[in-house]
Design a protein around this nucleic acid. Sequence first.
DNA 1: CCTTGCCTTAAACCTATGTTGAAGGTCTAA
DNA 2: TTAGACCTTCAACATAGGTTTAAGGCAAGG
Lengths: 158, 158
Amino acid sequence: MTYRIGEVAKKLGISTSALRFYDAHGLLPFVQRDAQGNREFTDNDLNYLDVITVLKKSGVPVATIADFIKLCMQGDDTLVQRYAYLEDTEQALDEQIRALKRQKAFLKFKQWYYQTAIEAGTETIHFKAGTHDFDPEAKREYLRLHPEAVDFAHFVED
Amino acid sequence: MTYRIGEVAKKLGISTSALRFYDAHGLLPFVQRDAQGNREFTDNDLNYLDVITVLKKSGVPVATIADFIKLCMQGDDTLVQRYAYLEDTEQALDEQIRALKRQKAFLKFKQWYYQTAIEAGTETIHFKAGTHDFDPEAKREYLRLHPEAVDFAHFVED
DNA sequence: CCTTGCCTTAAACCTATGTTGAAGGTCTAA
DNA sequence: TTAGACCTTCAACATAGGTTTAAGGCAAGG
């Protein structure tokens, strides 16, 4: 049983133009055509599209995914390469997660900054007296209250 | 004490062209100019640049960051708005982290898939007999061995 | 037979986020 | 006083990842 491009688009939530774009860039070499030249997607092709979708969401560029798919088409000789490839992707993913957590720690600090400012009715409590400049003491104060936030101590240079 | 654009670029690891681009797009309304028209960055401006950097790394578009900076320039009346803004950004960050973790769970499955294929010397152990089509049994088998991976059960439709 | 709804390709277009280059100003040190 | 190292603006270019549009083919229903 096969699917037409429009059905696949609906099933997977990918636009038909994106699917054609992927095909044009070598991500779908396995998709066959019918007598009229229309693409015929099999269930197995959808499995490949799941892999492609995950790699895309992991931030892997289309050209790099195309390399991986090429390896897949080459059979058992490339198994080790493909495994290494996925390990690299996983490491990149881990680094992205770590980076986002650092951004989150900083946002948490800024939320505390605004929360306390809102309670005080004014942001000036965080400024150096007589200026509109941040008092670095604010960051130190926060780190005293939230020692778990050392992750973002990177931002405290003082 | 002030810094010139090149010093700031070196200090923060942002190119001078990117800094000028941010200025042109309203992210640096606080930066003053000297008699020659050169930008003069203060230490406090660098604090704002830290905030901008974090928002950027959190995936917030430049135009949206500009809105936030505008609120910052408007004083205490916008404290609650600014807090809400940061909460929204944090939620978006949490969702990104959750999404990356789902991608990672799928990659882990694929790593198992290749690990076992490498041990067997061939990928065919995961195919339906006589075909090159994935046997959905592989996913079920993996979930039996790794019940913690239900996160990605989304991908198991069978 | 004609309309509707799919599908096809190729090429042009779009958005975000910068980068690069041209043309010129200022300051400092030799 | 001239060379070098900065800085300025403005406009053109680049890149990724699609989307849109134009022009056309095939098949089914009325």
